[in-house]
Computed example of a mutant assay.
Amino acid sequence: MTKAQDYRAMTPDQLDDELVKLKKEQFNLRFQKATGQLENTARVRLIRRDIARVRTVATTKRGEAAAKA
C-alpha cells in the first residue's frame, strides 16, 4: 500500500503508468480468485484503494493545472 503523499510527488504521466500497473494487478487477483488460487484476499481491497488514491490525486493535479491555465 502506497501513501497518497507518494502519489502526490508523481507527475500525471507517472500516475497514469501507476494506474495501469495497479489495474493489471487487480485483474490478475480477480483471475486468481476465480481459479481458487488467491491466498491473500486482503490484497484485493488494498489494490482497489490504491487505485482510488491514484485517481483522486490525478484528478486533483489535472484540476490544478487547468486552473493555472
Rank of each mutant, 00 (worst) to 15 (best):
D50E: 05
Q5H: 09
R30S: 08
K68E: 10
Q26S: 06
P12N: 08
T2W: 03
F27T: 12
T60C: 06
M10N: 02
F27D: 05
K23S: 05
E25G: 08
R55I: 03
L38E: 02
A4D: 12
K21Y: 06
V54E: 01
R45N: 12
L15E: 00
R8N: 03
K3R: 12
T56S: 15
N28P: 08
V57D: 01
Q14E: 02
R55F: 03
M10K: 01
R49L: 06
A69L: 10
K33V: 08
L19T: 01
T56G: 11
A4N: 11
T56K: 15
T60Q: 14
V44W: 01
N28T: 15
Q37K: 13
D6V: 01
N28K: 15
R53S: 01
G36F: 02
K24H: 13
R45M: 08
M10A: 01
R8P: 00
T60A: 15
Q14H: 03
D6F: 03
Q32T: 05
A66V: 13
T60H: 13
A65K: 09
T41N: 06
A4S: 09
K24F: 14
D13P: 06
V20M: 09
G36V: 05
E25W: 06
T35Q: 12
K24T: 13
T59S: 11
L46T: 03
L29C: 10
L38D: 00
Q32E: 06
T2Q: 12
K23R: 12
K3D: 09
D50C: 04
V44I: 14
T56W: 08
A42V: 15
K23G: 06
D17E: 13
N28R: 14
A65G: 11
